[in-house]
Design a protein around this nucleic acid. Structure first.
Length: 565
RNA sequence: CGGGGCGUAGCGCAGUCUGGUAGCGCACUUGACUGGGGGUCAAGUGGUCGCAGGUUCAAAUCCUGCCGUCCCGACCA
């Protein structure tokens, strides 16, 4: 392809609106242009990358026995009403009406549509298991689109859905998909981690996210220093704390005027934060609920939101609610004598002789102890703290370490959440109607483009991994327009490379060499062949890998061999 | 949705405080020179100053409202 004929609008300067490196480079190298917040046009080079990603994804999914379909973007409200999501989904579900005033939405996901397809077309256990995928546009009216295509409102997703008669069958497919995702990301040359994840409001223990490691990642992922434990921070848990030691202090009241925060309490009492317990009041299904944590811990609201009786999503009680429920202001609350349903974090439960609020303004208790001063039923001990770096890892696997990651894939068990209300059932061998178990497997195609760039760039631009590059080879012809020898040599090389199966971008523009080199680095094709009169006199051209810093002279007719070697 | 920025030529910005001819760099067009890491000179093209209303002899500039967009906190591929 002639570069002079391609729309590759490179930018010399960083666009003011782009913050993260991948977003900047995608704009600067002419991969995308923004249309509106969270909406992007993919230019020729960007689309090439998407196509190559899709090819890898397709090949591996088909290898895993998943069959491709394509469902509509626009979906009728009736299906969403069947599962209750028409009412449950907030404004992120973009709703619209057709000319007959019927309700539709832009699909943010396709569980309803695929389940509807399945129940209409599949009736026998003999057809199971079955797994469908599509690569298709999704629309989610995100609260805050950001970082370019990393979190866009309209984006391309590969989503797959499987149907099973029983759990064992599902487990096998889940494992297959886990391996499939690992193969896909490995083929792309990405440094990634599969981590245990929170499964959102779906439930079920089977849930893994696939994260591409990058500083700009929106998620914190936690892994064990000496083992294979890895989880999203939302889900991560530390090893249980050591058993509580014996109480040694007597319970005492302590006037603490003006002390509201743990920091102030530590300052005032001289007791370390991990022995000062904080009590948070959150909204519950039947009135407020108290949550007790160590002073040096922070609440994990995902974990807390799942507790029985606690409102989900989690909401902190207002000052007024706290006053009427506890009788004092936030800052002086404590578990002793508290007349509210109470959950105690397992680390807080392991503390003896602790300091806490006395449920009376400006008063705290010291030397407080579980069981002696306040009951601690086993059922109230839960894990609601956010794991900290350095915590002991579960199963004795060393300590917990943190990394940042970009979530590019998520696989999980849907169980019968959709199949039951929509009655996606088949007949088993005995003629019984069995509601199927479903699995769901997502991968963000357009987000992958950004993630790949986050991991493959340098100060000068993108460094495309070979399997994903928009073109394989960049032939940079210097003085192409005016030098017949350069023109002929460049054209010949392009022809030879093409015949050998390489895709070629030939820079035939009338730009000066400096401009061409700068653009070549920015665009970042993995291989660059520089054709100039200087070398041609010696019968050579120059080869340079994008990630190398030096050129290598190769004979004009030895370019294909050079790339193969 | 709460907090904070920003909207002036395709891109990056100055001008706004203190109202008075709409500017700079890059890009783009033409010509000349140049020709291996974003070159030089010359001449050009391109702007309802986000939108609407108001104040004023006069508004990019002051006032009001709205819109767009980005960043920081609750959702998700």
């Amino acid at each position: 392809m002639r570069q002079s004929q391609l729309l590759i609008p490179t930018l010399k300067e960083n666009p003011a609106d782009a913050e993260v490196i991948s977003h900047r480079l995608m704009l600067r190298s002419g991969l995308i242009r923004q249309l509106a917040s969270g909406l992007y046009t993919w230019l020729p080079m960007g689309l090439k990358v998407i196509r190559r990603i899709e090819t890898i994804v397709r090949e591996e999914l088909e290898r895993s026995g998943v069959q491709e379909v394509l469902m509509p973007v626009v979906q009728p409200a009736e299906l969403w009403e069947e599962t209750g999501r028409w009412a449950k989904m907030g404004p992120e579900l973009c709703r619209l009406k057709d000319r007959h005033d019927r309700d539709f939405c832009l699909g943010p996901t396709h569980e309803e549509v695929i389940t509807d397809l399945f129940r209409r077309e599949v009736q026998s256990y003999r057809s199971l298991p079955v797994n469908f995928f599509q690569i298709q546009t999704k629309f989610r009216d995100e609260v805050r689109p950001r970082f370019g295509v990393m979190r866009a409102r309209e984006f391309t997703m590969k989503d797959a859905y499987s149907f099973h008669l029983d759990q064992a069958c599902f487990d096998a497919t889940y494992k297959e998909m886990y391996d499939c995702y690992s193969r896909i990301l490995t083929r792309m040359g990405l440094d990634f981690r599969a981590v245990q994840a929170d499964s959102g409001n779906i439930g079920g223990d089977n849930s893994h996210e696939f994260h591409v490691l990058a500083q700009s990642g929106e998620d914190t992922i936690v892994f064990a220093s000496d083992g294979d434990y890895a989880a999203n921070l939302e889900k991560a848990t530390a090893a249980p704390p050591p058993a509580r030691s014996e109480s040694t202090e007597a319970l005492q009241r302590l006037a603490t005027p003006g002390v509201r925060t743990i920091e102030q309490l530590v300052e005032f009492t001289g007791v370390e934060a991990h022995r000062c317990l904080k009590t948070l009041i959150v909204a519950g299904d039947n009135g407020p609920v108290a949550l007790v944590l160590r002073g040096n811990d922070t609440l994990n609201d995902i974990k807390a939101g799942k507790l029985e009786g606690v409102a989900s999503p989690l909401r902190m009680a207002t000052d007024a609610e706290v006053r009427s429920a506890v009788g004092c202001a936030p800052g002086s609350i404590g578990p002793v004598g508290l007349k509210l349903p109470t959950y105690v974090d397992h680390y807080a439960a392991s503390v003896a002789d602790f300091v806490c609020g006395a449920n009376e303004n400006d008063v705290h208790l010291t030397g407080a102890n579980w069981q002696r001063d306040v009951p601690l039923p086993d059922a109230s001990i839960v894990d609601i703290r956010t794991a900290q770096e350095g915590d002991p890892a579960p199963h004795g696997q060393g300590t917990l370490r943190f990394l940042r990651g970009i979530e590019v894939g998520h696989i999980f068990q849907l169980d019968r959440v959709y199949s039951a209300p929509m009655n996606a059932a088949v007949l088993d061998p005995d003629g019984n109607s069995i509601v199927t178990i479903m699995g769901c497997y997502g991968m963000g195609i357009t987000r992958l483009v950004a993630a790949i760039i986050e991991q493959n760039h340098d100060d000068n631009g993108i460094c495309w991994p070979e399997p994903l590059s928009p073109y394989d080879v960049h032939v940079v012809a210097l003085n192409y327009e005016r030098s017949e020898s350069v023109q002929k040599a460049a054209n010949d090389i392009e022809a030879h490379l093409t015949a050998a199966g390489y895709s070629v971008l030939l820079d035939d523009r009338g730009e000066r060499p400096g401009v061409k080199f700068a653009d070549a680095d920015l665009i970042g094709l993995p291989h660059r062949i520089t054709v100039g009169e200087r070398g041609l006199k010696e019968g050579t051209v120059e080869y340079r890998k994008r990630t190398d810093s030096d050129n290598r002279n190769v004979p004009v007719n030895g370019v294909v061999e050079c790339l193969r070697g």
